[in-house]
Computed example of a mutant assay.
Amino acid sequence: MPLQTTHVLPPNPDAVVDGLRDLASSSYLNHDATTIHIRAGALFARLKALNRACNTATRTHKQIAADARHDMDQTHLGLQNFLYEKRHLEREIEKCRQFASIYQDVPLYSLEEFLERAPESSRTPDILDNEHALMLSRLSFELLERQRYDLLKQSKTQAATMDNVKAQIDLLVKTATDVQKRVSDLAESIPTTLS
């Protein structure tokens, strides 16, 4: 409930109190007692009405103050909740900033090399304008390049192994040919005396 400041205050009782004082003064000593009594009764009735109006106004203002205090307490509680949430989110943001991810230790191609070598689909204007998307694209490109490098390395290793195996097979064939030739030569040099 919004604070209401336009409540009417009860009339000032000073005029009634002054009227009662005047009745008690010496100027009314010679007046009729019944008239004074009637006038005093009317003034006391008016004073009681003012007292009731004052009590009603006091209760009304107390209620307005209580409502305003309640609204202020609710607003303060809401503020405290928002501040708590803000502190919590700031701590979470700081944790995220402090988080050491492995991508920070991955040596990447420089941005210029990425722009030269990466496929067109990895460096569209939308990607280049978004820092997060650009980092993801650079990491993906780095992964593909490393996989390609590993395949080339593996291919070279396999080619070297195959060349080595081929050389050993060639050596074995040559050695076997030499052995076969010697065996043939030895077999021819042995006289055949079985006749």
Rank of each mutant, 00 (worst) to 15 (best):
K95I: 05
L79Y: 12
N130M: 01
C96M: 14
S101R: 08
D126F: 11
L134I: 07
Y103K: 02
L134W: 01
Q98S: 15
E112L: 06
I102D: 07
R69L: 13
H88Q: 14
E85I: 11
M72I: 06
L136S: 10
C96H: 13
M72W: 04
Q104T: 13
P125L: 05
I127H: 03
F99Q: 10
E113V: 02
V106T: 14
D67C: 01
L111W: 05
S122G: 04
S121M: 04
E90S: 09
A100P: 03
E92P: 00
P119H: 07
T124G: 14
Q104I: 11
D126K: 12
L111H: 10
Q74C: 08
L128W: 01
S137Q: 02
Q104L: 09
S110R: 10
R69K: 14
M72A: 12
R91L: 14
S122P: 00
H70S: 15
L134F: 04
E90H: 06
S101Q: 14
L136P: 00
E94N: 12
L77Y: 02
P119K: 08
E116I: 06
I127A: 00
L79N: 08
R123N: 02
N130V: 01
E112S: 11
L89V: 11
E90N: 08
D126R: 12
T75N: 14
E94Y: 03
E116K: 14
C96Q: 15
E131T: 04
E116R: 12
E94M: 12
L89N: 08
H88K: 07
R87T: 10
C96S: 15
L77C: 09
D126W: 11
E94L: 11
Q104A: 09
S121N: 10
P125H: 04
L134Y: 06
E92C: 07
Q98K: 13
H132F: 12
P119M: 08
R123V: 07
Q98M: 15
H132V: 03
L79W: 09
A100D: 15
A118L: 00
H132Y: 05
L111K: 12
S122K: 04
F114Y: 12
